[in-house]
């Protein structure tokens, strides 16, 4: 009797340990959210800086007490959009090549390279961008610097490849082989089968990959910081303009900022957070749709 009780208690304790471990992630999310929002919303609640000026301003001059992030939002969105525009087609075609065309040896080699790409620290992407891409952009740029929206787009396009490729590949592989057989049996070629049957059938999974890629691009900091130019003012007017994304704004100044300046860096984080939350909700919705259909 006593032995059974002891055993039960032991089970209970182990269960609690598991629960504690599982709570770490949940608590972290809650803590970070609370921390960022608490600090980030403070300047607007206490009216030490007007929300509208913060959201619509196009200058960030802490010395003159000007904290406008509109041009950063625009920069972040443009950079992300550009990276998706270039990176997604490359990633999807790579995924198609790996899963539908390449021999298993070549497929493995490419997959290995893509996985390696995912593991490279982002600062190294930044260095690569600064050393290779920025000088090239400088050559074709009408301005006197290579750090630009364009350079940022290139770096981000490469950085989202692993995310999009691996998720797209998984969803292409999940397309039932019966669809492919049906298509071939009707006299469709390989390319027709891929573009008319396989990719549409894997659409929702591929979209999930794309959205995660957007999340990756919009949240990237270190690599972007080295190639974007980080100007203190101005909406980008061309792809050669410098940009200052939301992420780098925080990273550049958080180390020494204080007072309202520091709080408004948290506010920048709040905006970033909202973007990421929208992206995550979209992913959840897409994944649910996939299960539903």
């Amino acid at each position: 009797m006593e032995a059974i009780k002891r055993k039960k208690r032991k089970e209970k304790i182990v269960e609690i340990i598991f629960l504690i471990c599982a709570s770490v992630a949940v608590l972290s999310v809650l803590a970070i959210t609370f921390f960022v929002f608490y600090n980030g919303l403070a300047p607007f609640v206490t009216n030490s800086y007007p929300l509208w000026n913060f959201l619509s301003g196009v200058e960030w001059r802490p010395d003159s007490n000007l904290y406008g992030i509109f041009y950063m939002i625009v920069g972040s969105v443009f950079a992300t959009f550009g990276a998706i525009l270039i990176g997604v087609p490359i990633a999807i075609l790579t995924a198609v090549f790996i899963s539908e065309m390449a021999s298993s040896r070549i497929g493995k080699a490419i997959r290995f390279a893509v996985e390696l790409l995912a593991g490279i620290p982002s600062v190294l992407y930044g260095i690569f961008g600064l050393g290779i891409i920025v000088p090239y952009v400088l050559k074709i740029s009408p301005f006197a610097q290579g750090e630009s929206l364009l350079a940022t787009i290139f770096v981000l396009a490469i950085m989202i490849l692993p995310t999009v490729v691996s998720i797209a590949e998984t969803s292409i592989a999940a397309v039932p082989k019966e669809y492919r057989e049906g298509s071939y049996a009707l006299g469709a070629s390989k390319v027709q089968t891929i573009f008319r049957v396989v990719l549409p059938a894997g659409r929702s999974g591929i979209m999930t990959g794309v959205i995660l890629g957007i999340g990756r691009a919009i949240g990237e900091t270190m690599a972007v910081m080295l190639v974007c130019g980080n100007p203190i003012a101005g909406i980008p007017t061309s792809i050669f303009s410098q940009i200052r994304p939301l992420t780098t704004n925080i990273a550049l100044e958080m180390g020494y900022a204080s007072g309202v300046h520091q709080q408004l860096l948290y506010s920048t984080g709040v905006i970033l957070f909202i973007f990421i939350m929208i992206i995550n909700f979209t992913v959840n919705k897409l994944v649910k749709q996939k299960v539903g259909s």
């Binding site: 019966e178 057989e181 049906g182 049996a185 006299g187 049957v197 059938a201």
Partner: peptide, 14 residues
């Protein structure tokens, strides 16, 4: 394959 069509065991409409 356009001259020799095929219907499969499991219905496989796209």
């Amino acid at each position: 394959r356009t001259r020799v069509g095929m219907v499969f065991q499991k219905p496989n409409p796209f």
